[in-house]
Design a protein around this nucleic acid. Structure first.
Lengths: 142, 142
DNA sequence: ATAGCTGCAAATGCTTTGCAAGGCC
DNA sequence: GGCCTTGCAAAGCATTTGCAGCTAT
């Protein structure tokens, strides 16, 4: 299965059904927007505005519902970099992020360019669920 | 300078002044609360409730102001682990965190128990400001 | 005295929810 | 037709702000 297949309209259709979601107009149009251009990082706000520009009519409430449903379905991953705003990443594979603290822009770190050695032993009674690395960057010269 | 000195009442007094802050009753009482018991991780809510229990009268607005001012003064560090709530850490040295996704509890990872190898090259025109590692843990067996 | 703080309440920003109307199977 | 979805508006949180009154220097 290659990238194109994974994100093709039909494949998305299938993934929505598999997740028990009805392939509605809003969900399909948003999926198209999210996945057609490769890896993306969006906030609800941004996706809403972008949809509007593309002539897609969706309410902000539906954007939020959809982002969360896609996340549960494994189509998206939520990235926590800002206390106050939720970011969603179309790249669901294991990887980490750069976050530009001035432009608030989130980008992927090329896999394997950060090596985490041994992981620490988690607190008693717990197991590791995820390892998130965020490298905060700032424009040069301040 | 040892731990006790760093966090002694007098030393805090000095650090407040050095940061251009007046040593007011609220600030000194909150500093005491924050630093007397070693490393702590608090949210504004929690600190407010705790202050109330200790008979310290402070408004939530002042808690927020104080947390941010202490952060700017280098007495605290903000830790982003949750989009929706800000955590503050009294340990300002370089280290990383465990975050229990069920209890929402934040704890330090012993320094040196996570080794990050080479850091990736940041995006063009930017420099690395901070590297944050959050290991999300869950209670065993789910 | 005066510049800086504090507290309240109102405002803000992001996100969620309740519920009526509409769409998919 | 029945159940799931959507959209709107209202509600909900965490956080910030405006401003009058108080306080440290």
């Amino acid at each position: 299965m290659n990238e194109t297949e994974i994100y093709s309209t039909e494949a998305l259709h299938e993934r929505l059904r598999a997740a028990g979601m009805r392939p509605t107009r809003q969900r399909e149009e948003l999926a198209e927007l999210l996945f057609r251009d490769g890896n993306r990082h969006v906030t609800a706000e941004v996706l809403h505005r972008e949809a509007a520009q593309d002539g897609i009519q969706v309410s902000l409430a539906t954007i939020y519902n959809t982002l969360h449903q896609f996340t549960e379905a494994g189509l998206l991953r939520e990235v926590v970099v800002d206390s106050g705003r939720a970011y969603f990443d179309t790249n669901t594979g294991p990887h980490h992020h750069f976050f530009n603290i001035e432009s608030q822009e989130l980008t992927d770190i090329p896999p394997d360019s950060v090596a985490v050695g041994d992981l620490p032993v988690p607190p008693a009674g717990t197991t590791i669920d995820a390892v998130d690395i965020v490298i905060r960057v700032a424009p040069q010269g301040r």
